[in-house]
Amino acid sequence: MAMNGTITTWFKDKGFGFIKDENGDNRYFHVIKVANPDLIKKDAAVTFEPTTNNKGLSAYAVKVVPL
């Protein structure tokens, strides 16, 4: 089920960042999981599918909501 969130941290040079989800949890995401990576920036609103990996909470099918 899709969730909403906000990008809180973005490491462009490393290709990953973190999203604060609607429950207040931080989720890892990688640029290859983003549909529109050219719009990635700190504080951008996103929708995504929540999941977990071996390191904890993460996100896939991430879409940055255009302003």
Rank of each mutant, 00 (worst) to 15 (best):
D38F: 09
S58A: 14
D13A: 11
K63T: 13
F16E: 03
G5Y: 02
D43W: 15
T52N: 10
D13C: 12
T51P: 03
Y28I: 07
K42D: 04
P66Y: 10
F16I: 05
V46G: 01
P66D: 12
V65L: 14
N23F: 10
F11D: 06
R27H: 04
K20G: 04
A2P: 13
K20S: 07
V64D: 00
V31H: 08
T47K: 08
L39S: 08
N36I: 04
V62S: 02
G5D: 00
T52D: 07
P37E: 04
A61N: 15
D43L: 10
N26H: 12
L39Y: 10
N4F: 12
N23V: 07
K20T: 14
T51M: 13
D21M: 02
D13E: 11
N23L: 09
A45N: 11
V62T: 01
V34T: 06
G17D: 00
G17S: 01
I7L: 02
T9E: 11
K63H: 12
N36L: 04
F16Q: 02
Y28Q: 03
K14N: 06
I7Y: 01
T52C: 13
N4V: 11
T6M: 09
V31K: 13
I7S: 01
T47A: 05
D38K: 12
T8A: 09
W10I: 04
G5I: 02
A2T: 15
K55T: 07
T6W: 13
P66F: 12
M3V: 06
N53R: 10
A44C: 09
D13L: 11
R27N: 02
V34N: 04
A61E: 09
W10K: 00
T6I: 14
H30K: 06
A45Q: 12
T9N: 11
A45Y: 12
G24P: 01
A2L: 14
M1W: 10
A45L: 13
I7M: 01
S58P: 02
T6E: 05
T9H: 15
K14V: 06
E22V: 08
A59I: 03
G17F: 02
N53C: 10
Y28D: 00
N26T: 15
G15E: 05
N36A: 04
D43P: 03
H30L: 08
Y28G: 02
L67G: 12
V65A: 08
F16R: 02
D43E: 08
I19V: 03
H30V: 08
K63W: 13
K20V: 09
G17A: 02
V62P: 01
E22I: 07
E49I: 15
V64P: 03
F48Y: 02
P50R: 03
P37T: 04
H30R: 07
N53V: 07
T52F: 12
V34R: 03
G5E: 00
G56T: 07
V31T: 07
N54Q: 13
L67D: 13
T51S: 13
T6F: 12
W10V: 04
D13F: 10
G5S: 02
K12H: 08
A2I: 15
L57G: 04
K41A: 12
K55P: 03
I40M: 05
G15H: 07
A35N: 09
K12T: 07
F11I: 07
F48C: 02
T51C: 14
I7E: 00
I40W: 04
P66H: 11
P37R: 08
K55Y: 15
T52S: 14
A45R: 14
K63Y: 13
A35Q: 14
N26F: 15
K55R: 14
N36V: 04
N4H: 14
D38E: 14
V46A: 02
F29Y: 03
P66V: 14
I32K: 15
S58V: 10
I19T: 00
A59L: 03
F11Y: 12
A35C: 15
A44W: 04
A35D: 11
G56P: 04
E49M: 15
Y60R: 15
A44T: 05
T9A: 15
P50V: 04
G24A: 04
D21F: 02
N23I: 06
T47E: 08
L57E: 04
S58M: 10
K55G: 09
T9R: 14
N23P: 01
V31S: 07
D43H: 14
E22Y: 06
K63N: 10
M1I: 12
T8R: 10
L57W: 03
A59T: 07
P66C: 12
R27Y: 10
N54L: 12
L67S: 13
P50N: 02
T9G: 09
V31F: 09
F29H: 00
F48D: 01
V65P: 02
S58C: 11
I7V: 09
P66S: 13
N4Q: 12
A2V: 14
T47N: 07
M3I: 07
K20C: 13
R27P: 00
